[in-house]
Computed example of a mutant assay.
Amino acid sequence: MTTHETRPTRVASGDIAPDRRRGAELRVLLSPRTVGSTKGMLGVVALAPGEFVSEHYHPYSEEFLYVVDGDLVVRLDGDPVPLTAGDSLLVHVGVRHRVQNDGDGPARVVFALSGLAPSPELGHVDTEPQPGAGGER
């Protein structure tokens, strides 16, 4: 029998430095690095009008998106899928996706990935240049 840690681990969004390498303000809240998770991760993205998260895919993970505020377009293998507050979307393993705010106001998205790569550097494959590669991590 295996024992698991059952103590809750609280992480506030403001405790995580924003990562802007891929465009919009991304914060990974619950992950192997932050809380020692072993099966998945969760984070939030804030996108001002015109901002985006550059196209990428996950070779080992499904990604779940939930739009908290605003209007977005998620491009799946180039095809646009419009989403608005209250909508959710499953991005299957290996599907290229780009999240962009084409609206007039800010947007916030919660994302979760399930099924982690064997190592962090294998979990995310960029398919377009990273606009903020020199930005905060």
Rank of each mutant, 00 (worst) to 15 (best):
residue 69 D to H: 12
residue 69 D to S: 11
residue 70 G to R: 08
residue 70 G to A: 09
residue 71 D to S: 08
residue 71 D to P: 10
residue 72 L to G: 08
residue 73 V to Y: 00
residue 74 V to G: 06
residue 74 V to L: 03
residue 75 R to A: 04
residue 77 D to I: 05
residue 78 G to P: 14
residue 79 D to T: 13
residue 79 D to I: 08
residue 79 D to Q: 14
residue 80 P to L: 00
residue 80 P to D: 02
residue 80 P to V: 01
residue 81 V to N: 00
residue 82 P to I: 03
residue 82 P to F: 00
residue 83 L to G: 04
residue 83 L to V: 01
residue 83 L to D: 09
residue 84 T to M: 02
residue 85 A to K: 01
residue 85 A to N: 11
residue 85 A to H: 07
residue 86 G to K: 01
residue 87 D to I: 00
residue 87 D to R: 00
residue 87 D to Y: 00
residue 88 S to F: 13
residue 89 L to H: 05
residue 89 L to S: 05
residue 90 L to D: 12
residue 91 V to Y: 06
residue 92 H to E: 15
residue 93 V to E: 15
residue 94 G to A: 02
residue 94 G to S: 04
residue 95 V to P: 08
residue 96 R to Q: 11
residue 98 R to C: 05
residue 98 R to L: 05
residue 98 R to K: 09
residue 98 R to N: 05
residue 99 V to R: 01
residue 99 V to I: 10
residue 100 Q to H: 14
residue 100 Q to K: 10
residue 102 D to T: 12
residue 103 G to W: 05
residue 103 G to P: 10
residue 103 G to F: 04
residue 104 D to W: 03
residue 107 A to T: 10
residue 107 A to G: 11
residue 109 V to F: 08
residue 109 V to S: 09
residue 110 V to Q: 14
residue 110 V to R: 12
residue 110 V to W: 12
residue 110 V to M: 14
residue 111 F to S: 04
residue 112 A to H: 07
residue 113 L to N: 12
residue 113 L to F: 10
residue 114 S to C: 12
residue 115 G to F: 01
residue 115 G to A: 04
residue 115 G to Y: 04
residue 116 L to Q: 09
residue 116 L to H: 07
residue 116 L to Y: 09
residue 116 L to E: 14
residue 117 A to K: 06
residue 117 A to G: 07
residue 117 A to E: 10
residue 118 P to Q: 11
residue 119 S to P: 06
residue 120 P to V: 06
residue 121 E to N: 11
residue 121 E to W: 12
residue 122 L to H: 15
residue 122 L to R: 15
residue 123 G to S: 14
residue 123 G to Q: 13
residue 123 G to P: 14
residue 123 G to R: 10
residue 123 G to M: 10
residue 124 H to G: 08
residue 125 V to K: 09
residue 125 V to G: 08
residue 125 V to A: 05
residue 126 D to Y: 04
residue 126 D to G: 01
residue 128 E to S: 03
residue 128 E to G: 01
residue 128 E to F: 00
residue 130 Q to G: 09
residue 131 P to Q: 11
